[in-house]
Design a protein around this nucleic acid. Structure first.
Length: 413
RNA sequence: CGGGAAGUAGCGCAGUUGGCUAGCGCGCUUCGUUCGGGACGAAGAGGUCGCCGGUUCAAAUCCGGCCUUCCCGACCA
């Protein structure tokens, strides 16, 4: 992609009324734009990041045998009445009447909808177990939004739902999800803290939260420095001993063993070998995908801007042509661009006719892991520079050795 | 939903004891000079001063109501 033909509206100054680093940087780097409180557009660069995060999640979900589907955001309220959650989730549910006078809501989550699907299509133990998931937009009328996309009214979530014939099956699926979650967050460059938690409005018995330590977090967890044991920080549960450290953290994922709460109230039953009718044993597994992006930025930045982990970065390499008007510079830049694209890399070429300082600062801000800098000064010695965004390390290379050097550096990022 | 702060050009801000045609920086347009860390000169475009009402000869400025946004608490991915 040529920067001059792309759409990256970077901001030089910190937008008014922003506190969190991730909020400031996501706006300044041209990733997102606020329409109203808690409602954001994903601009091309942010949308690319979103797609990459989604694909990591997809790969891991598919790898453990889950099947992707897409459920509607628009729900008739009567399905919610069957579980009573039209009342318990009333505060956050966006409801309205359609023109037929039917009471509707925008889905804040999807247990009811998926359970209704299972009820209609899963009739036999032979069809179990099965896990379905989607990456989809949720609507929650948050009274208090926070820090841009950290807590929004419209946000993107991955939600998976497992159906088993018994609790043993559920525990297996639950463990698979726990393992997949650990891989997903690791791939996103995050050190997550896993802690067992209350299941709240979701219902069920066992549940675990996945959190990442960050000062803007809305949760807190006690971590035992000796054995890694964790305890959710809630009133009355203060562990004794100096080995316990309290960490403020952002909740990124939450998994639940639901049991039969939804299958019973919605009649999702199957027939076992004996012909007996039994409720399906369910689990649900959520990741706040848009929040995950904010968390990644929150823990991967410096004074210059974002430092993307390579798996998440909107581009693999940025080529910074200092003098876009100089023919030697640009022909070399285009050569690298084609070469790197040829080996499957996603490349951004800053070919704008802007001052060097501005291009350097924009490059730091949007945080592409590797940068090739082509300028007249180095070119007189037939050299160009490669800069690693995270470490700031600059490597001077012969202009004919750029591809090799990029390939050498990639695995170490 | 309680407590606090703020709304003036796309962005960041000044102006507010009521008084000329509402200003500055950045960005944007045109021309020229520049070109290794947000360059320089010249000429331009861009505004319901959040909204409604009140006071006044006169309101961005004073008064009342409302709206919006942000931050802190209770709740969530």
């Amino acid at each position: 992609m040529y920067w001059s033909k792309y759409f990256i509206p970077t901001l030089k100054e910190v937008p008014t009324g922003t506190e969190a680093i991730s909020h400031q940087l996501s706006l300044r780097a041209g990733l997102v734009h606020m329409l109203t409180s808690g409602v954001y557009s994903y601009l091309p660069l942010g949308y690319k990041v979103l797609a990459r995060v989604e694909n990591i999640i997809r790969q891991e979900m598919n790898a453990i045998g889950c099947h992707e589907l897409l459920m509607p955001a628009l729900h008739p309220i009567d399905i919610w009445e069957k579980t009573g959650r039209d009342v318990t989730l009333k505060e956050i549910m966006i409801t309205f009447d359609n023109k037929k006078g039917q009471r509707m809501c925008l889905g804040p989550t999807h247990e009811e909808i998926i359970t209704d699907l299972a009820r209609q299509f899963i009739k036999s133990y032979r069809q179990l177990p099965v896990t379905l998931y989607q990456i989809q937009t949720k609507f929650r009328d948050e009274i208090r939004t926070r820090f841009g996309i950290v807590r929004a009214c419209e946000f993107i979530m991955k939600d998976a739902y497992s159906f088993d014939r018994d609790w043993e099956g559920l525990k297996k699926n639950y463990d698979l999800q726990l393992q997949a979650y650990n891989r997903i967050f690791k791939c996103c460059g995050l050190d997550v803290i896993v802690v067992s938690a209350d299941s709240g409005a979701m219902g069920g018995s066992i549940s675990h939260e996945f959190l990442v330590a960050a000062p803007i977090g809305e949760d807190a967890v006690w971590v035992n420095k000796d054995d890694g044991q964790t305890i959710k920080d809630e009133e009355g549960k203060i562990p004794q001993g100096s080995q316990w450290e309290r960490k403020v953290a952002i909740e990124l994922g939450h998994v639940f063993q639901l049991g039969t709460k939804y299958s019973e109230s919605l009649g999702a039953v199957y027939l076992d070998e004996k012909g007996d009718q039994r409720p399906m044993i369910m689990g649900c597994y959520g990741i706040g995908v848009s929040r995950l992006i904010a968390a990644i930025i929150e823990v991967n930045n410096d004074s210059g801007g974002i430092i993307w982990p390579k798996e998440i970065a909107p581009f693999d390499v940025e080529i910074l042509a200092i003098q876009a008007s100089d023919e030697n510079t640009m022909s070399l830049a285009k050569k690298y661009y084609e070469e790197l694209k040829g080996i499957g890399m996603d490349v951004l070429l800053d070919d704008r006719d802007e001052s060097a300082g501005r291009k350097f600062n924009d490059a730091d801000l949007i945080g592409i892991p590797l940068r090739i800098i082509i300028g007249k000064r180095m070119l007189t010695n037939n050299q160009v520079e490669i800069k690693i965004r995270r470490s700031g390390q600059v490597i001077v290379v012969d202009k004919d050795k750029v591809k090799e050097e990029i390939l050498r550096l990639c695995p170490s990022l």
